[in-house]
Amino acid sequence: MPTVTEERPPRALAEELRGLTHVDWTAVWAGPPNPGQALDDWCALFGWQPLTVERVLRVRTTTGADLTLEPLVSGGWSPVRSVTFTVRHLNADSQDENDLVLEQTAEVWPAYEAAAREVLGAPEFSGAWDDPAFPEPPNDRHWLPSRDFRLGRRDPYRMAVWSAKDPEGPVTVLTAKSGGVTRRGVGKRGVMINVHCYPQDAL
């Protein structure tokens, strides 16, 4: 049977998303200061606690999620390209279960999407990897995967997108993405339900 290695219930997702509505996104996109008191103070503005001191900043929220502040360039913390966290991670115990983990994720997906709707309202898009209305990336550096990649790998398996009304606010993307399997089908699949927040002017 597939194994759930990380699971925060849908209500916890709603709680985290509610917390993120109070974040000063302009400050987040600009990036954090170097570690020390300045970083502690910067994190405290959002109710976060820093977990790392270099390369990629990770913080813990007051409601228990570990957020990753992905930088746009390597070697530094600023500017921030996205804020990401995982709410569920399901793993196949054998290669025979690789399709089962996708099916089981699809079963729990509506509950997570509904929890996000509670906070963010109706999404601009919500659908599966083969949905004809699935949005296309405007360029090849965009966070949206190309059509070929998405259809060839069934990835993201599910996706829902919300854009904040405030132009400095994030595009919030709930995804079910899989990994662990090579193009030749070797390996055990894992599927994560993640939240990604991107600046609205992200490539």
């Binding site: 992905e70 930088p71 746009l72 360039v73 390597s74 070697g75 530094g76 390209r81 090849d140 550096r141 965009h142 966070w143 995967p145 190309s146 990649f149 790998r153 990835d155 990994g179 662990g180 399997v181 090579t182 193009r183 030749r184 070797v186 390996g187």
Partner: peptide
């Protein structure tokens, strides 16, 4: 040098992961 640096797209990440998983296997 910084301006020329870009994060990996999902496609690039997929190719990198494929190479690592294949070599590990």
């Amino acid at each position: 040098l910084r301006d020329a640096d870009t994060p990996a797209t999902d496609e690039q990440a997929g190719r990198i992961a494929d190479r690592i998983m294949t070599a590990a296997d």
